[in-house]
Amino acid sequence: MGFYAFSAMYGDGLERTMEDNGVSEGEPVWEAPFDYGENYSSSLLMGILGFLIVMVVMTGYILVLRSRKNKKTN
């Protein structure tokens, strides 16, 4: 938690490069339904949500793939 609090407020390498050169982020073309959260607890929640979404999508992708493979072999 302390680690998060220490570093989360700072930008990454690209954000820092943009900042140093006076370039700001444009308006997003796609409004995503979620963001990573503003504090530790909301970020934790988003982390769990993201973990589950990635797991479901990845599993779904491979299961679809497998069923197509099985259809081909039958």
Partner: peptide
């Protein structure tokens, strides 16, 4: 898969 979800669900990185 990770980058597409980060973009579409969490708005991390622009869609364009």
């Amino acid at each position: 898969v990770i980058l597409v979800i980060q973009c579409l669900v969490f708005g991390d990185g622009g869609i364009t």
